[in-house]
Structures are given as structure tokens and as C-alpha cells.
Amino acid sequence: MDLKLDHHSEDSLTIVDVEGEIDVYTAPRLRELLIDLVNKGNFHLLVNMEKVDFLDSTGLGVLVGGLKRVRAHDGSLELVCTQERILKIFRITGLTKVFGIYASVEEAKEAHGRDK
């Protein structure tokens, strides 16, 4: 499956919906989107990965790159993910300590509201 990307803003939070496979072939498109969003002043990103079928280290690299960019603007990049096969790669690499990972968009929005 290819990669589908969409995004919309809710208050100060930009929600990026990702569907499909994030790998060495498709990850550059996600990277471009994250860079574009940051360049346009969106510094609080929530990447919804509930419809991601596959994620590899290239995808992790893109997410880490996005996190570095938003942090340079005192922003945040957090994730929505409940799929065990996706969470496993975050655990193997220790990146669960780096990203805020939520069970739903609503939960993430609530946490973002508290942190503002």
C-alpha cells in the first residue's frame, strides 16, 4: 500500500493523518510535509499513525527529524499509535522515551491543552 497523507489544524495543533506504509520509498513524502508545515509556522504537530501498516527506521528518522525541527521553535511532535507492531519498533529503539505517544487523537489533544 502506498502512503496517504492529510493534515488539518485544530486550534494551535496540526494533526497529520498518515495511512499506509512508511518506508525508504515513501518516507521522503512525509519528510517534505513535516518540513513544509514547520516552515509555515506549524510548530505543534500530532502525527496520527492509527492507519499506518508498516514503519521502518527510515520513517523513524523522519519523525525524529520533524521533532528536532519543531523543538527548534519550542514546539512539539507527538504521536497517536495503539498498534503493537508499530509500537514495537519505538520500544526497540528506545524512542518511546523521546515521543509522546497517545492512544487517541482526543487523548493527545487533551494533553496538549494541559501543556499549553
Partner: peptide, 22 residues
């Protein structure tokens, strides 16, 4: 892992081998 996420892109190449090992 640098806990603040501040590792450089070229180090991400090593991430793949780490994932395989895991």
C-alpha cells in the same frame, strides 16, 4: 539513544541494524 532526540541524520543509518538486532 540521545534522550533529547538530538542525534544527527547520519547516525540514523545505525538505527536499521539496531532494529534488526532487536
Amino acid at each position: 539513544l540521545d534522550v533529547d532526540g538530538a542525534f544527527m541524520p547520519d547516525e540514523m543509518a545505525e538505527l536499521g541494524v539496531a532494529v534488526i538486532a532487536g
